[in-house]
Amino acid sequence: MASAKESDDSPNTPSSPNNVFKDPDDGRQRFLLELEFVQCLANPTYIHYLAQNRYFEDEAFIGYLKYLQYWQRPEYTKFIMYPHCLYFLELLQNANFRNAMAHPGNKELAHRQQFFFWKNYRNNRLKHILPRPLPEPPTALPAAPQPPVAPVTSVAATTIAMTAAPTPALSPMQYGIPSGSALGKSELRTGGVDRRKRKKEV
């Protein structure tokens, strides 16, 4: 009886906490392998490969995908370089998505939508991150522009120049006498006769 009790209490029994398996490198190698596999799920082509080779029909593999959901916790997401893998990991929990990814058309569709997300993510994100400019305060309406006032010196100079300049005498043609009228011709002729007479008298 004593030997049976001693065998039950011995540290070599499977139920003993001393027999818990420990990684020789404290789980570093396992951590890196799981991190690499999870990040491979960011590639729709790789998911299509898994579906084509019927990995999603294996219950053990589906259980492994459920186990890998711990990478969505904040203390593990800081090691993820390709965040799309977490989104696809969540989608892979659905049997309809797993079956759909076996078709090449769905693989191309997922890849195309992923490209559009990368293309527009930065611009869409900056709309919410960058501070918006504050609204400008209402300003009073501008006054109506007044016509420019000429300086006094220029006005005085123009008036002096106008009064000082002699006005030239207007010719008969500028008084509105028609060129073909008899009055104009007779005046011009008499004026010419008078000049000749004066020259002869002198």
Results as ranks from 00 to 15, higher is better:
residue 97 F to M: 02
residue 115 F to C: 03
residue 187 E to P: 01
residue 173 M to E: 15
residue 7 S to G: 00
residue 31 F to Q: 03
residue 61 F to N: 03
residue 129 I to Q: 06
residue 60 A to V: 09
residue 1 M to D: 08
residue 15 S to H: 08
residue 161 A to H: 13
residue 8 D to H: 06
residue 99 N to H: 13
residue 62 I to R: 15
residue 170 L to S: 11
residue 145 P to W: 07
residue 16 S to M: 03
residue 24 P to N: 06
residue 104 P to Q: 07
residue 67 Y to A: 03
residue 98 R to M: 09
residue 36 E to V: 08
residue 14 P to I: 12
residue 130 L to H: 13
residue 146 Q to S: 14
residue 16 S to I: 04
residue 188 L to P: 00
residue 88 F to C: 00
residue 169 A to K: 15
residue 118 W to Q: 09
residue 38 V to N: 02
residue 117 F to P: 00
residue 50 L to F: 02
residue 178 P to W: 14
residue 18 N to C: 09
residue 126 L to K: 05
residue 10 S to L: 00
residue 129 I to P: 02
residue 43 N to G: 03
residue 35 L to T: 11
residue 27 G to V: 05
residue 105 G to A: 12
residue 143 A to C: 13
residue 3 S to W: 02
residue 71 W to Q: 13
residue 174 Q to K: 07
residue 31 F to K: 03
residue 68 L to F: 04
residue 60 A to L: 10
residue 93 Q to C: 01
residue 192 G to D: 08
residue 190 T to H: 07
residue 106 N to S: 02
residue 26 D to W: 08
residue 125 R to H: 05
residue 40 C to E: 13
residue 42 A to S: 15
residue 118 W to A: 06
residue 102 A to D: 09
residue 9 D to G: 09
residue 54 R to P: 00
residue 175 Y to L: 15
residue 8 D to P: 00
residue 33 L to Q: 15
residue 46 Y to G: 01
residue 93 Q to A: 03
residue 148 P to L: 14
residue 61 F to A: 03
residue 43 N to A: 12
residue 173 M to C: 09
residue 78 K to R: 06
residue 88 F to A: 02
residue 147 P to Q: 12
residue 18 N to Q: 12
residue 11 P to R: 06
residue 102 A to M: 06
residue 119 K to E: 04
residue 176 G to W: 11
residue 125 R to M: 08
residue 188 L to K: 14
residue 172 P to R: 12
residue 147 P to D: 11
residue 181 S to Y: 07
residue 83 P to D: 01
residue 33 L to S: 15
residue 80 I to N: 01
residue 131 P to E: 07
residue 88 F to N: 10
residue 98 R to C: 10
residue 11 P to E: 05
residue 194 D to V: 14
residue 132 R to M: 14
residue 112 R to Y: 07
residue 113 Q to I: 06
residue 124 N to E: 11
residue 62 I to A: 10
residue 7 S to Y: 02
residue 4 A to M: 04
residue 19 N to T: 14
residue 131 P to F: 04
residue 44 P to S: 02
residue 199 K to S: 13
residue 37 F to H: 11
residue 107 K to V: 04
residue 93 Q to M: 03
residue 135 P to L: 07
residue 144 A to M: 12
residue 177 I to R: 11
residue 140 A to K: 12
residue 60 A to H: 13
residue 11 P to D: 07
residue 77 T to W: 00
residue 137 P to M: 04
residue 116 F to L: 08
residue 163 T to Q: 12
residue 98 R to Q: 10
residue 197 K to L: 14
residue 120 N to H: 09
residue 31 F to I: 01
residue 194 D to K: 12
residue 113 Q to F: 07
residue 35 L to W: 14
residue 2 A to R: 07
residue 5 K to C: 05
residue 189 R to L: 09
residue 138 P to R: 13
residue 82 Y to N: 08
residue 126 L to I: 02
residue 202 V to L: 11
residue 160 I to E: 15
residue 119 K to A: 01
residue 146 Q to D: 10
residue 26 D to F: 11
residue 109 L to Y: 10
residue 59 E to A: 15
residue 120 N to K: 06
residue 84 H to I: 05
residue 173 M to H: 13
residue 175 Y to M: 15
residue 7 S to D: 08
residue 18 N to M: 10
residue 194 D to R: 14
residue 153 T to R: 14
residue 182 A to I: 14
residue 24 P to K: 07
residue 194 D to S: 12
residue 191 G to N: 10
residue 78 K to A: 00
residue 46 Y to I: 07
residue 49 Y to I: 03
residue 54 R to W: 02
residue 6 E to T: 01
residue 23 D to L: 06
residue 199 K to L: 13
residue 121 Y to N: 09
residue 5 K to T: 03
residue 183 L to V: 08
residue 2 A to W: 06
